[in-house]
Simulated scan of single mutants.
Amino acid sequence: MNNLRELDNGLQQEWIAVPQNIIYRLIGSMKRRCMASDRISANAIIKPYNKTMNSTWLGLVLSTTESLFNNDTEEEEEEDKNERFHFQIQGKTYMTFMLVIASLGVVGNAMSFILMSDEKLRSLAYSVYLRWMAVSDSLLLMMVTTEDTLDTYNYLQRFLVSHVTLCKMWTFFLAMTYTLSPWLVVALTLDRFVCVIFPLSRYRLCTKSKAFKLCLTLTLISAALNVVALTYTDIEDDKCEQSQNLHLSRYMVFQQLFLNSILPCVAVLILNIVTVSRIRQSAYFRQQFKRSGGSEATKEK
């Protein structure tokens, strides 16, 4: 009985002496250890057990605790190395693609802007749309690339939280260009639609001044739709983020899903289908007219 009491007291004292962080590590890693134990063969479990049978229970507890702690530290270090290696590969690959896409996009937009600024093309309506799109898309590409680059290397929040004005304006312009870019494509498609469907009215509707007014109107509407970024965006807990609001979240989902994606895509699809259909009808009519004209000329001969 005395030996059992001494053993019990010794175990309690040793348990109290174990640091709390080691206990937390052991408890937190218990699930992973159980899964690892399932993969170990029976012989690998029995052999360490037979070697420690001759030692005291107190020594068994201490040695087991030490080995678990050491194994836990080694496994965590190995996992950290694997995660860092995976992050470096993934980050470099992602950033390489992003920089290539952004560079090609900005260069292409710059060339389009220069080409559409030529004296012969400047007076046409679609040149206004293409130049406006070049500026908007280039701004969006540069902002997204900068944001992803800073986020990849964990500098994004440091950059945005440097000043509340920067936080608000960055979020506002990014959201505005996301809305503006697809609707400029819709405006250009609508201009081509009017020229094909209403050819007699093209000189009255498809003008440079009307194209400029439409682009300016779309820009103002996009700014008005995203003014919530200026109102509800702020720096909280060293993060530039929008305030948690149920109505705001629903509005943002509606805007990004419907206004920025579904509606402009459907509009462009419908306009292009109608335009292509009219062009095919016109081509078919011309072929029939040529055939009828050629048959009449043959009869007269």
Score class of each variant (00 low, 15 high):
Asp148Pro: 00
Lys168Trp: 04
Phe159Tyr: 14
Leu184Asp: 00
Ala211Gln: 02
Leu214Cys: 13
Lys210Trp: 04
Phe159Gly: 09
Ser201Val: 01
Leu218Thr: 03
Arg202Trp: 00
Leu180Ser: 11
Ala187Asn: 08
Tyr155Pro: 02
Ser222Cys: 07
Ala223Leu: 06
Phe172Met: 12
Ala175Ser: 14
Val164Pro: 07
Leu150Cys: 03
Phe198Val: 00
Arg192Glu: 10
Ala224Met: 11
Thr189Phe: 11
Ser201Gly: 05
Lys210Ile: 05
Leu156Arg: 06
Tyr203Pro: 07
Gln157Asn: 01
Phe159Asp: 05
Asp191Val: 12
Ile197Ala: 07
Asn154Tyr: 01
Ser209Gln: 04
Tyr153Ala: 04
Ser201Arg: 14
Cys215Ile: 00
Val186Ser: 07
Val161Ser: 05
Ser222Pro: 12
Asp148Asn: 13
Leu184Cys: 01
Phe212Ala: 04
Thr146Ser: 07
Phe159Glu: 04
Arg204His: 11
Ala223Lys: 04
Thr177Ile: 13
Arg192Met: 14
Pro182Trp: 01
Leu205Tyr: 15
Ser162Met: 05
Glu147Tyr: 12
Ser201Ala: 11
Thr177Gly: 05
Thr179Leu: 09
Leu166Thr: 15
Leu214His: 08
Asp191Cys: 12
Ile197Phe: 11
Cys215Met: 03
Cys195Leu: 07
Leu205Asp: 09
Thr207Ser: 08
Leu214Glu: 05
Arg202Thr: 08
Lys210Gln: 03
Trp183Val: 01
Leu200Ala: 06
Ser209Val: 04
Ala175Asp: 08
Val164Trp: 10
Thr177Asn: 12
Arg192Ala: 14
Lys210Met: 02
Thr219Tyr: 10
Arg158Gly: 15
Ser222Gly: 13
Cys215Tyr: 02
Pro182Phe: 03
Ala223Phe: 10
Leu166Arg: 14
Tyr178Gln: 15
Tyr178Pro: 13
Arg204Glu: 11
Met142Ile: 14
Leu166Pro: 08
Ile197Cys: 09
Thr177Gln: 14
Thr207Arg: 09
Leu190Ala: 12
Leu216Val: 14
Lys208Trp: 12
Leu218Ile: 13
Phe159Leu: 04
Arg158Trp: 04
Glu147Pro: 00
Phe198Ile: 00
Thr152Ala: 01
Val185Ala: 06
Thr219Ile: 05
Thr207His: 07
Thr152Gly: 02
Phe193Ile: 12
Leu205Pro: 13
Leu156Met: 11
Thr219Asn: 06
Val196Tyr: 10
Leu214Met: 11
Leu200Ile: 03
Tyr203Asp: 15
Thr145Asn: 08
Phe198Ser: 05
Pro199Phe: 05
Ala211Lys: 02
Leu180Asp: 06
Arg158Ala: 08
Asp191His: 14
Arg192Asn: 09
Leu184Ser: 07
Asp151Phe: 06
Ser162Thr: 07
